[in-house]
């Protein structure tokens, strides 16, 4: 079926973009790849019939999150240093592969016989049936805003601290050096 082919293509490309986003040494390309993942996922969502979520995903996931990431990058500067992994990569790969295979195998029966689809309008479900979720979400957003304000608002703007200046940074440096040595051994 042609539909299957589309889905497979989209999944693979999304996986590839995700991989690029994860592997890239530069943060800006990473953010852009993430936006691609988001766009591809929203296409899949659309094809599945979840039109509204597809729009939300496209605007929030691909748009807002990317903007936020880029904004954070611009605040921080060009600290895009992403050195070698601490965990041996084969171990990480094995762990993830085994878990993913097991999860995939166990989840498979779920999709083997899909039920007939009862179409319901998102707005109805979200605002009527799931109104309580929305209320809790308001609390969550409030907490998040408080968090950002609490973390970032500065009464006085202190000098930015650069590496090697604080004692903690020095300690951290020592640990990092040690970790790096362990990786290379």
């Amino acid at each position: 079926m042609i539909e299957n082919f589309y889905y497979l293509f989209l999944s693979l490309v999304a996986g590839f973009c995700a991989y690029r986003a994860m592997i890239s040494k530069q943060l800006l390309p990473s953010a852009l790849y993430l936006a691609c993942v988001s766009a591809l996922v929203s296409v899949m969502l659309y094809m599945l019939g979840a039109h509204e979520v597809a729009v939300i995903e496209l605007s929030v996931g691909a748009g807002l999150v990317t903007v936020l990431l880029v904004y954070a990058l611009s605040v921080i500067g060009d600290d895009t240093y992403d050195p070698t992994s601490i965990i041996p990569k084969p171990l990480a790969f094995l762990l993830v592969a085994a878990t993913a295979l097991l999860v995939g195998w166990m989840a498979y029966p779920l999709v083997s016989q899909p039920a007939a689809n009862g179409e319901v309008l998102l707005a109805n479900v979200l605002w009527k049936q799931r109104a309580l979720d929305v209320w809790v979400q308001v609390a969550l957003i409030f907490s998040g805003v408080m968090g950002v304000l609490g973390l970032l608002s500065e009464k006085t703007h202190p000098q930015e601290i650069h590496p090697h200046e604080t004692q903690a940074a020095a300690e951290g440096e020592a640990i990092a050096v040690q970790i790096e040595r362990e990786i290379h051994v």
Partner: peptide, 11 residues
């Protein structure tokens, strides 16, 4: 609720 609890405890 669980996620809201987490978000409010980060700060």
């Amino acid at each position: 609720w669980f996620e809201a609890m987490a978000v409010s405890s980060y700060l």
